[in-house]
Computed example of a mutant assay.
Amino acid sequence: MSTAPADTTDAPIDALRSALARLTDPEIPVITLEEMGILRDVRRGSDGQPEVVITPTYSGCPAMGQIEDDVRAVLQETHPRGRVITQLAPAWTTDWMSDTAREKLRAYGIAPPRCTTAPPPGVLRFSRQAVTAEAIACPQCGSHNTTETSPFGSTACKALYRCLDCLEPFDYFKPY
């Protein structure tokens, strides 16, 4: 959500924000859009109508259509003339995920991403940062004795790993 101070007298926007905060990611239903950092802002537009700002995790994310539909459904219930704004810049980063989201990923069996260092303001990043050789902890047993079996996991934002101690396969949410 935006870091701008909330207008404490705008109960309809506050109610909309609360309703939107319950929406979950279609691909990882234990995490909310807010916890993922996809839900960026809820505000009044220049015409006074609510605007919900979302940022996709990456430009080709197949879940964005469902996310937009879910946000529009909440808007339709409370503010039929409200709008969804997809904001591409700044680009979403896994650093926007809350600590709660990271813990929920781990509990769900997905190794959470490591934090990355964001580029300085005004610097464009055209590719994902290189992942260091640091071992990924198994979300099942916590062992760091893991290996990547495929850079492609159940979705494009994940890689497939295997724990060499408990022998369980698991997804690793790639840092962006």
Rank of each mutant, 00 (worst) to 15 (best):
G65T: 12
A101P: 01
A89L: 13
D70G: 11
G109C: 03
T100N: 12
I67L: 13
D95Y: 04
P112C: 04
A63H: 08
T117E: 03
G65S: 12
T86G: 10
D99H: 03
L88I: 11
D70R: 10
D70P: 05
P121F: 00
W92H: 09
T94G: 03
R81F: 13
P112M: 02
Y58F: 14
R102E: 05
R81Q: 14
P121A: 07
V71C: 08
L75H: 03
E68D: 12
A73D: 09
A118I: 03
V71E: 07
D69Q: 15
Q87H: 07
E103V: 12
T117S: 03
R102S: 05
Q66K: 14
A118E: 07
R114K: 06
A111G: 01
C115F: 04
G60P: 05
R81N: 15
P120Y: 04
P112T: 05
A89K: 10
R72P: 09
Q76I: 09
A89W: 13
M64P: 12
G60E: 09
G82S: 08
S59T: 15
P119H: 01
E77A: 14
R102I: 05
A118S: 10
G65W: 08
E68I: 15
L105H: 02
A63V: 08
R102P: 07
L105C: 02
T100I: 10
L88V: 11
R106P: 04
L105F: 04
P120E: 12
P113T: 03
R102A: 09
S59K: 15
I110G: 01
P112E: 04
C115D: 06
A89I: 14
D99I: 05
A63Y: 08
T116Q: 03
H79G: 08
P120S: 12
H79D: 13
E103Y: 06
E103M: 11
A101T: 02
A111I: 02
A118F: 00
H79Q: 13
R114H: 04
A107R: 09
G65M: 11
A107K: 12
I85N: 11
A111L: 02
T93F: 02
V74R: 07
T86C: 11
Q76D: 15
